[in-house]
Structures are given as structure tokens and as C-alpha cells.
Design a protein around this nucleic acid. Structure first.
Lengths: 234, 234
DNA sequence: GCGCAACTTTGACATGGATCAATTATGGAC
DNA sequence: GTCCATAATTGATCCATGTCAAAGTTGCGC
């Protein structure tokens, strides 16, 4: 792996509190690789052999069933993914593919599990990460069950603006069809939902979105910390 | 707490590998309480002060937003619930209410967290439980995003029959409106979905269901281990 | 910078589920 | 058993969203 990647990985919640020895040991057995866009990293049903850490680029986790597909999560740097399957040493429930050219660190699950057994700090971090991931999925399920398509779009726009540091304008970080799938709708529905929101506090120009009336948009979305506030510690 | 409850709790994945000393210590600070049906145990947004363990009865975890409600999970004995919120010391994302008269053991989250710090076996069990819970929510989100209402009903019937020990006939363990909400549809839609399945391998008599043609029902459901097989270790 | 493929938007239409309303069934309490 | 509240079913209708089709638009490769 490249040395310049290390500080970012070291500062992940997962590794922040871990001893240098353990961290270096894990990095020594990991390898970093660059992948082109639209490449399948792994497929649901395969055994989870590696914890993946996205260093650069972006990755979609998606699920396939009966010829249908749904994006379940969009991963941004720097963060790990499919921790749960690695911990339990079971099969992936989701497939992963790169959206852009991406650099990914692959950490053998067997080494991760060994390190967890050795180091309580790592175990604690994994626990916290899993709890956070679990709650993230609960939020997503709530979002899907309780909100309409348009409400989900409005809430996502607000959430994204917030995660970007409270900005008002941004360009969509992924293609609209992927966002649509992530939000549980078709690209056509997303397009129409966005159009419909033009009178509800946003301005559009292609992939560029400007939130012109945060209050109004929040009212449409029914913005709720218990669904939308990803900063988990509330 | 009652002594006759202990063995069942002791044999939970969470406590199975824990030292007797730690287990007894945790039991000593917990208390067991019986609740009538339809009682609210806690409400989303409240601070998670107790890990709950359902000893007897049944509990629904539900989410509320903007006047709408959705059942997110149905808990059956003996199992713990809202572990993630307790670990992270944050607010509940879901509310809980009893469906029947229930006996619940309440374990102070602060004591649980202390015990986890002391005992690696407990930490390992919590990790495993959280990973399992996370994967359960992923399955649920896949179910919601990929399947139609009728397919979800068919899959649930098969899954329930399987969890009951591979039986063909059973009576619904909860009221149909709660099942409907859990499956992400209205009671009317559940009723119609069940009716529609009468020609697809099931027979109905009120809350009693008999699977007459497992193959056929599985074909309608698009039964998939990566969504439906709750025994996680595949 | 051209051209083509992929993505997006828009329109027309179909449909799965929701909603509303009216019966019918179910299950305790007495 | 009878009564009454609650749940479940059934029917009619509506609406959000999906589907299909046809333009637009974008952006990348050569």
C-alpha cells in the first residue's frame, strides 16, 4: 500500500484507538489496488474474504434478485465496507462495484478477526462501527417504509447538503440513476420528483442542485433527526 | 428476576460464553417485569437506558413519522432488543410496545457497557449479535426494495414455516394488521395478497395458514437464501 | 471537434397498492 | 350464550409510481 494513504486509514473510527503495532501488522498483510469505473469488486453470495476500505473514488453496494437490482448503499472515502460479513465469516448479502476509478485497500478478514481477538480496543471500535451500521440500515428502512418517493428525494438533498458541511449548492456525487435506485425509485420518478421540488425550495441545472429555501424543503421532506441525522450520536 | 428465567437467558448467544461471575453480576442489577398487552415500553427519541430481553410474550418495534407508523421488527422470546442504541449510548430509533402480555428483563445499559469493557467474551458476543442484526436489516431493506407486496407475503409465509421447524401449517403469531405493517403494506393489501395466494400453494382459515404446495409458493416468493434465510451463517 | 453511446428528461399510459366505505367475522367480558 | 368492540374482508375508486417510448442531452473516445 502507499504510505500517503495511511494517515487517512489510521484516522478511521475503526483504527483510531488501535495500537500502532496492530495497525501496522494489519496494513502489512493488506494490499491496495486501483480499479476502473463500473468494475464488480465482489458479488452477493460469495464468501467474505476481505474487509474493503475505500481510499479514493466511490463504490455502490447493490443487491440483485430475480432480475431486479437495487443500490443499497453508496460508499465514499475514507470508509470501510462489509464489515459485518467479515466478522461473521459468512457470505456477502450485497454486491459491490466501483462508480468511479477507485483505490481500495483489501484487508484479509482472517487477519482482521485475529487482530480483534488480540486487541480489545479494536473490538470496541468494531462494535461501535457495527452498531452505527445497524442504525444506518434502520434509518434506511424507516425512510423506505414511511416516506413517499418525493419526500425521500427532498430528505436526501437536505442530508447531502448537510453532510457536505452545510452548503446550499452541490453537484450530485453519483449518476442520477444510481441515486434513484438508492432511494428506491426509477430514474424517471427521480427526475419527476426533482422537477416537482423546483417550486419547493430548490433550483436545478443538470447535476447541479441549489437549495434556495431550506425551510420549505425541510417541510416537504419532513426532516427528522431520527431518520436523517447520520451523525449517529444523538 | 425469577430463577426459572435464567437458563433461557443464559443460553442466549449474547451470554452463552460469558463467565458465570459476569452473568450473575448483570442479572443482579437487572429487573424483570411483566407488562400487559399493547403497552408502550419506550418511545423513539428517548435515551437508551436499558437493554431489553423478551423472556415471554411478544413485542413490536415500530417507527413513527409524520403521523404514519410502521412496524420495523417483531420480537419473539427469548431475545434481546435495541442492543445497538445501548452500546452507543444514544437515542432509540424505534419505539416498542407489547403485543401480548409479556415478561421483559431490563438490563441497565451502563452496566452492560461496563461488563463489555471487562470481558472480551461478552464483547465478542455483542459484536456477533450486532453483525447479525445489521445483516437482518439489510435483508429487510432488500425485501422492501426488490419485492412486490405479494412476493413479500409469500416469502414471509415460507420463512415463518421454516423458522417454526419446517411445518406446513401454523397460525399467524401476531394480528394481521401488525404483520401487514411489518411487511410494508396496509391490512387491506395483506388480505388481498393472502387471498391471491390461495391458488398458489396455500390454504387459509382465519389466522390459520397451511402451505399446500411449497414449491409453488416458493416460486411466487422468489425465495432466496440471501434475503430469507435468517440463520445467518451461510 | 465529431460521433456515438449512455444518461436524462418528457409524455402517455398501465398498474400495484392505498384509501375510503361498508359488511362480516372474531374474541373477550359478562 | 349474548353483546360489543375490534379486526378482517370486500368492493369501489384514486393516486403514486412504474413502464414503455421518444426526444433531448451529456460526455467520452477517437
Amino acid at each position: 500500500m502507499r504510505d500517503e494513504e495511511k494517515p487517512a486509514i489510521r484516522s478511521l473510527p475503526l483504527f483510531r484507538e488501535v495500537s500502532t503495532q496492530t495497525f501496522e501488522g494489519l496494513m502489512a498483510v493488506s494490499y491496495s489496488q486501483a480499479f476502473p469505473p463500473q468494475l464488480d469488486l465482489f458479488t452477493q453470495g460469495e464468501r467474505a474474504d476481505f474487509l474493503h476500505i475505500l481510499v479514493e473514488g466511490s463504490v455502490a453496494l447493490h443487491a440483485d434478485w430475480n432480475g431486479r437490482e437495487a443500490v443499497m448503499a453508496m460508499v465514499r472515502p475514507v470508509s470501510s465496507f462489509i464489515l459485518a460479513a467479515c466478522i461473521r465469516d459468512v457470505r456477502y448479502l450485497m454486491s459491490a462495484r466501483t462508480l468511479e476509478r477507485s483505490r481500495i485497500l483489501m484487508l484479509p478478514a482472517v487477519d482482521l478477526r485475529a487482530a480483534i481477538r488480540r486487541e480489545p480496543e479494536l473490538a470496541a471500535a468494531v462494535m461501535s462501527e457495527l452498531a452505527s451500521g445497524y442504525r444506518g440500515m434502520v434509518r434506511q428502512a424507516k425512510n423506505l417504509k414511511l416516506r413517499t418517493a418525493r419526500e425521500r428525494v427532498a430528505a436526501w438533498l437536505l442530508g447531502h447538503a448537510h453532510r457536505q458541511g452545510g452548503v446550499n449548492g452541490f453537484t450530485l456525487p453519483v449518476e442520477k440513476r444510481d441515486l434513484a435506485s438508492y432511494l428506491g425509485m426509477t430514474p424517471e420518478s427521480l427526475s419527476r420528483a426533482l422537477s416537482g421540488l423546483k417550486t419547493q425550495g430548490i433550483a436545478l441545472d443538470g447535476a447541479r442542485v441549489i437549495i434556495t429555501d431550506r425551510e420549505r424543503l425541510a417541510a416537504v421532506a419532513g426532516y427528522d433527526p431520527l431518520i436523517d441525522e447520520v451523525g449517529d450520536d444523538i
